[in-house]
Amino acid sequence: MQKKSIALAIGLFVVGGLSGMVLEHFRPIVRAHAEVSLGTAQKLFDAVTHGRAKADKVFSGPGGLTGVEVDFDGHKTVAFITADGKYLVAGPVLNAQGNDQGHAAMIRLGLVPKPMRASALAKETVHADSFVLGTGGPEITAFVDPNCIFCHKFYERAQPLIAAGKLRIRYLVVGFLKPSSEAKAAAILGAPNPAAAMAENEKGFVEATEEGGIQPDEHASAATISAVRDNTRLLSESGEIATPTLIYCDQKGAPRLIHGLPKGSLKDFAGHIGNLQNGVCRK
């Protein structure tokens, strides 16, 4: 891996553990048992990031790794270093259950907020800048980024259900995946008809480059940019900045949250959920 690529990997990790899942339990951070000193960690970061990253503290990580709290271009994150101090792990560190140890450490260190419960987050989204596609069926809330390929697939799969009156989706558009994401999100939310703007983005979506089709609005109003950033902040309170993130009601009337696409077919998913409106589950 090139040094530039490693720096980029750390930068992606800063965004919020894009591939990570939140651990409910993880062992306490104990600096005394760290295998790699803070000075050694800093030397490695200097070598691979050309001085862009500053190692603030070290702690014991999983599998003999040393965890490092890092300041990367003014953003706090966590990375891991091998016991010999020669190799940097600048991405998700997963256990056998698929849980990301780095993201859990970021919560423990206070670098990212503790995940909000689905019921609380659902109520927080009520006043967010959003729009609804569909007129019948159960309603769910979806956080999407204009450049997210899985959001694009979700949009396409949902269209037949929306057209048949079997699903309604309230979209909260966010912007974090690519440099153009925020301006594209602003182009959608700031449009006279956000649903039509979303359709334009998805119709022109280029899967090869994972780029939404709408033109970025580089001159969006401050209010629109603020709305996009507020939506992105709400997404971060789900515990993971990942799209699509869905909030829905289960058959027992309890709010649920999932990161990514539902398992199985979307048709089956829509047929076994409740109705989420105004932040609460309704019959």
Rank of each mutant, 00 (worst) to 15 (best):
N193A: 06
H259M: 05
D73W: 02
G137D: 06
N278Q: 07
L44H: 14
G264K: 01
L111W: 09
M1S: 08
A53T: 14
S226V: 11
V174K: 09
V132F: 02
V30N: 15
D250R: 08
V70P: 01
I6W: 10
F80T: 05
N147F: 11
R31Y: 08
G74E: 11
L94M: 01
E124D: 02
E202A: 04
G74M: 14
A90S: 05
G175R: 09
F13V: 12
R229H: 02
G110K: 05
Y171L: 00
P216K: 01
G190R: 10
G134C: 02
L109R: 09
A105S: 12
S19I: 08
I149L: 04
A142G: 02
K184N: 03
R27F: 15
S19N: 06
A83V: 10
F131W: 01
A227M: 00
G136R: 05
H259P: 01
E218N: 15
G134M: 06
E210H: 07
F59Q: 00
K153F: 12
A47L: 07
A55P: 09
E35L: 15
E218M: 15
G165L: 03
A7I: 01
R233D: 15
L246Q: 02
V228W: 03
G271Q: 08
S238R: 04
F59H: 11
A183P: 09
I162M: 05
T135V: 08
R108G: 14
L12H: 11
C151T: 00
P146H: 06
L121D: 00
P28N: 00
K283S: 14
G102S: 14
I258M: 13
P255L: 06
F150C: 03
T141P: 03
P262H: 12
I214A: 03
A118N: 07
H219R: 13
G260K: 07
L246D: 03
A142L: 11
A122Q: 02
H50S: 15
G85E: 08
A90Y: 05
I162R: 08
G165Q: 04
T141N: 01
F80M: 11
A32G: 09
G67M: 13
A53D: 14
A122S: 09
N201E: 01
V280L: 12
